[in-house]
Amino acid sequence: MIEVRGLTKRFGRTTAVNDLSFDVRPGRVTGFLGPNGSGKSTSMRCMLALDRPDSGTVRFDGRAYDTIRDPLFEVGALLDAGYVHPGRNGRNHLRMIAASNGIGDKRVDEVLALVGLSDAAKRRVGTYSLGMRQRLGLASVLLGDPSVVILDEPANGLDPEGIRWIRDVLVHLASQGKTVLVSSHLLSEMAQMADDLVVIGLGRLIDTGTVADFVARNARHWVRVRSPHIAQIADQLRSGGATVTMLDDAGTGLTPGIDVIGVTAIQIGELAARSSAILHELSPQQGSLEDAFLEATAGAQEYRSTSPVDNSPPAPSGPAYATPPQQPPFAPPATNLTNGGQP
């Protein structure tokens, strides 16, 4: 269990982390998300007593990090795979870390095998690829088989197999009851492995909770409808106050469709039933974690890019609509769509 309370860190006039509080629970993978410059890495350094916070506390199972003797047995951390001496070989890099906590060379060889670096153990780290350094960093995390694991961008530089491997490792660690805090910009990966999220922006907490709740709160929701009578259904929905967008499916062979915001799939289904309209698709849609993240952090981006193209997600992958009214004034008319709109 990690408890962060009121963590604040300033660099001169810049407040990198501002009164940050959150918990990281055991047995779960917690994603630590935030735009560039949001204070994730600074927070992690403060948690590990590498940076001295201006105020606030961080507790690992009730204890401050700098009071833990031989912390490798309790907290394993990888903040940057580049924190290595390029002239030292991988095995010696691990040996020097292990020795500081009384961990023997046998365990060093075990974790090297675990991360698949046994064959490269005697090579200088300067010759390692970024992915190999990430594996070496993860090996150092595993040295003491700690109950808490903290990783900053562990998938950075890994190939698809490596990304999948690290995901499996983290999920496995969490399944063993360990506390796992991991930051990443790979939101699709995070969506697959994280149970909980801590989202920060400009050093402040934006949201925390389960991934499902975060997406439900922040991503947009809409309903996709396909029907041979789509024009009539669209008219009915518009007249009921819903926001309707026609799907551009020309030439795809698909039944014409619409995306609808402001009504539920149940309401649309009932409308179609009353109108005797055939539906080929009636599916509630929800934005991705990426959509939710962008929405949640829209006002907390320190560095914003301008895009040469319209960034609105296309209809097939996500909604490009205005936020729907909280209570849509939808009152489905009793219209039979199969007989020319006659009741």
Binding site: L50, Y65, I68, P71, L79, V84, N101
Partner: peptide, 14 residues
């Protein structure tokens, strides 16, 4: 210069 001091202090925060 190689930032291994962070690895060192993370392993032994005293």
């Amino acid at each position: 210069s190689h930032n291994t001091i962070r690895t060192t202090f993370a392993a032994v925060p005293q």
